[in-house]
Computed example of a mutant assay.
Amino acid sequence: MAMSNVETRPDQVVCKAGGLPGPACDQQGRSPVEIITSREVPLGGPRAMIVRRTLPQRQRSLIGPWCFVDHYGPADVSVTGGMDVAPHPHTGLQTVSWLFEGAIQHIDSGGNAGLVLPGEVNLMTAGAGICHAEVSTEETTTLHGVQLWLALPEATRHQPEREFEHFEPTPVSFAGGEMLVFLGKLWGTESPVQTHSPLLGAEIRLDPGASIDLPVNPGFEHGLLVDSGDIALENVDLPVAAVGYTGTGVEELRIANRSDEPARLILLGGEPFPEEIVMWWNFVGRTHEEIAAYREEWQAEGDRFGVVDGYVGKGGPGRNADGMGRLPAPRLPDVTIRPRKNPPPQVQGGPAE
């Protein structure tokens, strides 16, 4: 999943103690929560799959180094033929693929190939440049999961290595549910996958009616994405497909599933990312000029990104269902692309205007 964001911001709602917009909530002694709602975005061409995107947006472009959050499915792909994203480029980021249902074949210009399966994380490091393709398997009839990006810091964003890591975390049980920590460390469980900033990524499963007071790193800001369930974060109702954001300084998150069905959530966190980024299409850089140069090199089939060998799309070897062997870059906007300025790592007041 590889498209960037050029859309207007979704709604933002803040619920905190002492008078608040919208429905009342009992927040005595709890941390304030900023609700970032999703918007639907078509991913791909005529056979586009609809995804629900929460990051980036104007009010909050990053949560820690997390700069892109797409949530999709469960989508019946038996009629459309499934996912078929032809080779496309990336710079300055890591892609994090995490599935709930289905299977996707990954292949990249670093010579890496891997099968993305539910409960197993695949992390690809773009560095100075990489290209890859993603195709759902023939057996997949339903796709459901998240696609996430991490911005690389200045120290490693130009690295020439095209890295790929795969990890299947062991579920860790607690009273009322279980968690799978796929990146970073949470509640004594740690992932061995290498990242370039202090961060966290975990799937949390809550039983019907269950709740947890989850100890978290107070140096991190956190975002909780709801996949399913009637969820309250810090006693604030959190809609399905929305992200509940809490800033730094929070030592514990109260998460409750108020429904009579199991709930599934994705918890993302990290130290506030200190650098401003320029993000356009599939590129993360620091200036408009960098982005323009990346686009030109991709269009010219330059050496920066390499070549994906062995791509087999829905249109046969080397072609997707629309007959393309690689995705062309969109036209650059007529204005200078500016850095994404993130607000301070605390909950922002009031609904978005």
Rank of each mutant, 00 (worst) to 15 (best):
Y294W: 02
H106I: 13
V77D: 11
H90K: 00
S259L: 14
G285I: 00
E275A: 12
G209V: 13
A241S: 15
D108C: 10
A126P: 03
V77L: 04
H166I: 14
A113Q: 14
M279H: 13
M1F: 06
P153D: 07
M83H: 05
D303R: 08
T170I: 02
P23D: 06
H106A: 12
D309R: 08
M83Y: 11
Q194E: 15
A103K: 15
I50H: 12
F164Q: 09
I104R: 02
V236D: 00
G18H: 09
G244H: 05
P46F: 12
V33N: 08
L233N: 10
G209D: 07
G114A: 15
I63F: 05
P21D: 13
I291V: 15
V193L: 11
G316T: 06
S173V: 09
L224W: 12
L253S: 08
S4A: 08
A321V: 10
M49C: 03
P192N: 07
R52C: 01
P65W: 02
P10L: 04
P208Y: 11
G102R: 01
V77E: 10
W98K: 05
V236Q: 04
A113W: 06
D227H: 14
G73I: 05
E154H: 03
I107M: 03
E40I: 00
H196E: 14
H71W: 01
R52Y: 06
P345G: 06
V116Q: 15
G247K: 02
Y311A: 01
V51A: 13
V69P: 00
C15S: 06
Q28I: 11
C25I: 00
F305M: 00
S259R: 14
H106P: 12
G306L: 07
H158T: 06
G302P: 09
D76Q: 10
A2N: 09
P274N: 08
H90D: 02
F283M: 12
L267G: 07
G244A: 07
L327C: 09
M49Q: 10
V33F: 07
A2Q: 08
S259D: 11
T37D: 00
S259E: 14
E190Q: 15
D70H: 04
P118Q: 07
W66Q: 01
S4T: 08
G223V: 05
G249D: 08
V146E: 00
L123G: 11
G269W: 05
N112C: 07
L183S: 14
G223F: 04
E120H: 15
G114Y: 11
V51D: 04
H166A: 10
L186M: 04
V240H: 13
V146L: 03
I107E: 09
I35E: 00
E261I: 00
T336W: 03
A151F: 01
F174N: 09
S78Y: 03
R58H: 06
P10G: 07
F68M: 12
L238Q: 03
Y311G: 00
P89S: 05
T137E: 14
K314F: 05
G310F: 01
G110E: 10
D207K: 14
A256H: 14
P339Y: 09
F68G: 10
V116T: 13
S136G: 13
G119D: 14
R47Y: 11
V135K: 15
L332T: 11
A75E: 15
Y245E: 02
L332R: 02
E261V: 03
L214G: 12
G176P: 06
V6G: 08
